[in-house]
Amino acid sequence: MPDTAALAPPLQAYVQHVASERRLAVRTVAIYTEGLQQLQAMAAQAGHEVLALQPPHIRRFVAALHAQGRHGRSIALWLSCWRGFFRWAAWQGWVERNPVEGIRAPKTAKPLPKALGVDEAVQLAAFVNPDADPWDEARDAAMTELLYSSGLRVSELAQLDVQAGSGLGWLDLQAGLVHVTGKGGKRRSVPVGSAAKQALQRWIEVRGTRFSAHWAEPALFVGTRGARITAQTIWLRLRQRSQQAGLPAAVHPHVLRHSFASHVLQSSGDLRAVQELLGHANIATTQIYTRLDFQHLAQAYDLAHPRARKKSG
């Protein structure tokens, strides 16, 4: 139980209530305690007891927190805590109304997805590790190429089978397509680029060489024991590979998905096509890449345009 000695008795009682009667997790109780400490401090600064606060006070507190640079999610969490306290205080007969009811945290802009530059993506995709086991190298190279070539989610990559069957996804190398089942059970087919096809062909040629003649695992990508590779293993292998390739930051599979989307959009300008390739149900989800594309263009402008460059001296 967090230290509540600095809290006023009504606030202490509420922390005791959520800890013992509602049995919230220790971490959650600590967050509630921090939120109530913040509420008490801001009330004291405004010259009021906590139980005397009204909606205008809460709105001013939210505005002050936002001005201090607090993230919208943090403010929303504290508002939820305050709302719960005043609702409970009303049940106790200590207040007539809940001053936090109807007050929402300011919206925080969604962060831009992290994507590699084209040169970095090509550097990673073309990387060959001369010290790696040839079997591991063939598999990891094929996974990296396919993630960047087709923009698959890591779960979609892991569920691929080597050929059509009863699974959730499969590779059709001859047609140059992967068929996957995405979120919500939505099926889609995505093209496979020529470099990825070559890497996949090399992997398929060596895929079964470590196992017995009776080995019949349908998964396209397998581990050293012959079972379907896990999403966690894909994350670890790609992170290690990106570091070996000399990239400044470790890369995870979703970075390659973002890179795929951003680079296709930069080249084609076709947002609907990118939506279909990514398997987004709503185009609003895909539109975030237009912000990323604009950021790229703005950086190019700042570097290239004579009137955009800052004067030295």
Rank of each mutant, 00 (worst) to 15 (best):
M1Q: 14
T4Q: 10
L7P: 02
L7R: 10
P9I: 05
P10R: 13
Q12N: 12
Y14D: 01
Y14W: 07
Q16Y: 07
H17T: 02
V18G: 00
V18P: 00
A19L: 01
E21W: 07
V26S: 07
V26Q: 06
R27A: 14
A30Q: 10
Y32A: 01
T33V: 10
T33Y: 04
E34Y: 03
L36C: 07
Q37N: 06
L39E: 12
L39F: 00
L39V: 09
Q40I: 04
Q40H: 00
M42Q: 15
A43T: 04
A46N: 04
A46S: 11
H48S: 14
H48G: 04
E49L: 12
A52T: 00
P55K: 12
H57Q: 08
F61H: 13
V62A: 09
L65K: 08
H66N: 12
H66L: 00
I75E: 02
W78P: 01
S80L: 03
W82K: 11
R83F: 09
F86Q: 08
Q92D: 05
P99Q: 11
P99C: 12
E101N: 10
G102L: 13
I103P: 07
A105M: 09
P106T: 14
T108M: 10
T108P: 00
K110G: 15
L112Y: 03
A115L: 07
G117P: 00
G117D: 12
V118Q: 14
V118A: 15
V118F: 14
D119A: 08
D119Q: 11
V122N: 01
V122I: 12
Q123I: 01
L124F: 07
A125M: 15
F127I: 01
V128P: 05
D133V: 12
P134E: 05
W135E: 12
E137Q: 13
E137C: 07
A138Y: 09
D140A: 10
L146D: 03
L146P: 06
L147F: 04
Y148P: 03
L152W: 05
S155M: 10
E156I: 08
E156P: 06
Q159V: 09
A164T: 04
G165Y: 05
G167R: 04
G169S: 00
G176K: 08
H179G: 05
T181E: 07
G182L: 14
K183H: 09
V190H: 09
P191K: 02
P191T: 04
P191A: 03
V192F: 04
G193F: 03
A195D: 13
A196C: 07
L200T: 12
Q201F: 10
R207G: 04
T209H: 13
R210F: 13
A213S: 15
W215T: 00
L220C: 02
R225L: 09
A231H: 01
T233N: 06
W235D: 14
R237W: 11
L238P: 08
L238R: 10
L238I: 05
S242L: 05
L256W: 03
R257V: 03
R257M: 05
A261W: 05
H263E: 08
V264M: 11
Q266R: 14
Q266K: 14
S268D: 03
L278M: 13
A281Y: 01
T285Y: 07
Q287H: 03
D293F: 15
H296I: 10
H296R: 15
A300R: 08
A300Y: 00
Y301H: 06
D302I: 04
L303P: 02
L303T: 11
H305P: 07
P306F: 13
P306N: 12
S312Y: 02
G313E: 14
G313A: 11
